[in-house]
Design a binder for these strands. Sequence first.
DNA 1: AACGCGCCCTGTCCGC
DNA 2: TGCGGACAGGGCGCGT
Length: 274
Amino acid sequence: MPELPEVETIARDLEARVRGAIVQDLSVRRPDILAPDSGTRRLRRNLSGRRITDVSRRGKNLVFVLDRRFRMVINLGMTGRVVTSDSPRASELVHVAASFTLEDGRSILYDDARRFGRIRLFTETAWRVRDAELGIEPLAPDFTPELLHHLTRRSVTPIRNFLLDQNRIAGVGNIYANEALFRARIRPTRRANRITRPGATALHHELRAVLSEAILERGTTFSDYRDASGNEGAFQFRLRVYDREALPCTVCDHLIRRVVLTNRSAFYCPSCQR
DNA sequence: AACGCGCCCTGTCCGC
DNA sequence: TGCGGACAGGGCGCGT
């Protein structure tokens, strides 16, 4: 579900809303959303009484920094939502899996219909290891066209799959991978190592553009995504190929095609994308 | 060692 | 109206 722009939107909402708040306690209704090393007892022991000193994003992960000593990291999977209790929409959540009460009386609610999401507690040391495993941030200054081209050299997987690999580039999911490839006029099936240097330059540019625009629109609500107030994003109205099988291309009117790559749909215009 | 597959789980939609 | 199958934004473990 949530890709980089959606998680970024939630992180910014929460940064403004709960930074500085102190965690009082937590309650877990669905223990299967906790990572094996982060059970209720360990979470309670290390979160209770701690101040949220920062809320940020790394790839598709939402990161809560606690007293600069621990990090609680939430990966939202396909249907995870994080909404604060002071939002009028909080009462609409029907799959609350865990909640974190704050000393100011509010709480942070984690809702997840399919329960593919995970909550995991890291020490700063453990986080450094995990952080190093994740790929580069596509919006960071050190993500350059040259680096993208270089990364693609030793991969024969279709470029759409390449873009989904969180250990190469962190934060891109199926929607934005497909949208960036459309804008860069590259077919999703093209082998990564067959991307030309101009192709890599175009893809780098369009990837950043589509992610940035989606952040401005507060994300794409395909079905489940909500921001930290429980509201929908608006980028779904700007999608050019994703979920548009058999609809006319917005550029040339050829019909958008769907192909399945490793069990996940890819969408492209057969005329615009080569 | 990179890659693809199956699976985790629930909800929704579509065809019959 | 009911039922079965396909599909959904992700990520992990496994076999090759």
